[in-house]
């Protein structure tokens, strides 16, 4: 039985004044695990994040007119093993938002579809362990015309994103370390307003969305039925502007967040192909984002199209 399930975490990341990180991470594969050929892992993930404090620029504050802002996501996701070294992934979440105080109405809807290609070009023994390198590329596209310019209660930022990620993994016995770096290109978005103010008045309904860079470190235990890991993620928006004193947030704010979390995946021994995951995370530092606490839980199942009925015997620990 393998651990090659979409193994993630919605994630250890800030509910960035709503969901930017969820966009970046919940839908991407950030682990060093591949599906075997002709195996299709599908599953559902529920995640919830909430924050009471947020950073207005660099100033940490609360807002009595928002109370606690929370979001929930119900993600449908899957991974298909084209070959042992090439996987395709998708994720499509339905999201809801809510503020516990104040008068603003929450939002809900289908968010962004993300598609990923994950390639394992290099895997070799190194010392007593195994070193592997992955190149991952992805695109995420809004699936509905949801409103982006309604922060902190919009369900997403509505940009079309292209991501490139380099991921390196080293496993020694049952212990592993994974590091990755991601660059996210974000397309400009169109909002309903015909003008807005950033650090200057912009008389346009187009918004320049700065790109984003993230780095992630994962350390933990990985065996055939159990994965337990600690995760640290750092996200930086490469541009953007700070929320002004007592202003509302805006999609092109400079949203930065550093978060830590844990993630556990257990693959059942009794039911072949079935696994359960769960995790939690907390934002320890940020800028123009909420200080989010989040948790997630999911169920995944592997469908085997090899016809033999055997489930991925080669799901070696990667």
């Amino acid at each position: 039985m393998n651990k090659n399930i979409i193994n993630r975490f919605a994630i250890a990341c800030a509910l960035v004044l709503t969901l930017i990180v969820a966009q970046l991470h919940a839908q991407t594969d950030e682990d060093a695990i591949m599906m075997a050929k002709k195996q299709f892992c599908i599953g559902g993930m529920y995640s919830r994040g909430s924050w009471k404090n947020y950073w207005e620029g660099t100033l940490k504050r609360n807002n009595l007119n928002l109370g606690t802002v929370s979001n929930q996501m119900f993600g449908f996701m899957g991974t298909y093993g084209v070959t042992e070294k090439l996987n395709l992934l998708f994720n499509l979440p339905y999201a809801t938002t809510n503020a516990s105080a104040g008068t603003l109405h929450g939002q809900q809807g289908l968010q962004d579809l993300s598609l990923w290609v994950k390639w394992l070009p290099l895997e070799k023994d190194l010392g007593n362990g195994t070193f592997s390198a992955y190149i991952i590329g992805g695109v995420s596209l809004p699936t509905t015309n949801y409103i982006a310019d309604y922060l902190p209660l919009s369900i997403g930022l509505h940009s079309t994103n292209l991501s490139g990620r380099l991921l390196l993994d080293y496993q020694l016995g049952n212990f592993f370390t994974t590091v990755s770096g991601t660059y996210v290109y974000r397309n400009n978005i169109t909002i309903d307003r015909s003008a807005y103010y950033t650090t200057e008045q912009i008389n346009s309904n187009k918004v320049n969305m700065p790109d984003v860079a993230t780095e992630q470190l994962r350390i933990g235990y990985r065996s055939s039925h159990l994965i337990a890991e600690a995760i640290a993620t750092n996200m930086n928006t490469l541009g953007g502007f700070d929320i002004r004193r007592n202003d509302m947030p805006f999609p092109s704010n400079k949203m930065n967040a550093t978060s830590v979390g844990v993630n556990v995946k257990y693959t059942l021994k009794k039911v072949e192909g079935l696994s359960l995951i769960g995790g939690g995370g907390y934002t320890v530092a940020g800028r123009n984002v909420g200080q989010s606490t989040m948790f997630n839980a999911g169920v995944f199942y592997i469908l085997d199209f090899n016809g033999s009925g055997k489930k991925s015997s080669n799901a070696a620990n990667k």
Binding site: V82, T83, L86, L88, V117, W119, G137, G138, V139, L162, G164, Y185, N187, N188, S194, I202, N203, S204, K206, V207, N208, M209, D211
Partner: peptide, 29 residues
């Protein structure tokens, strides 16, 4: 099959480069 997907990956990469090269400057009306 494998080639198709590799091509796909290359396509995504090329598209990324093109898009990134485009200016994102927003022009006022």
């Amino acid at each position: 099959m494998k080639n198709i997907f590799l091509s796909l990956a290359l396509l995504v990469l090329t598209a990324s480069v093109i898009l990134v090269a485009c200016s994102k400057k927003v022009e006022g009306v």
